[in-house]
Amino acid sequence: MKKTVISVIGKDTVGITARVSAKCAEYNVNIIDITQSVLQDMFVMVMLTDIAALNCKFKDFSEAMDSLGHELNLEIRVMHEDIFNSMHRI
């Protein structure tokens, strides 16, 4: 398992989860968990994914998510799980 956090922040519209999930499937990324919330009028979705079977370079996947974000007018980030673990857990 190689866990990665995909975060989506922006204005809520129809089909965000579907579009992001479809993109994950396209790149062979397995979704382990999804959490959604609304924060100060902003839609926030956090996906925990496993990219062990990713079918391209990490950078290409990350850029694909970034451009999907531009298309949907959202901020989509792909970040390795370790940065959150190291910052918030001792």
């Binding site: 956090v5 975060s7 922040i9 959490t35 926030v44 956090v46 940065i83 959150f84 673990n85 918030h88």
Partner: peptide, 16 residues
Amino acid sequence: MINLNDILETINMIRQ
């Protein structure tokens, strides 16, 4: 899973 607030805190530190 890592706490949602922790994730958002980290992301906020970077973006804002």
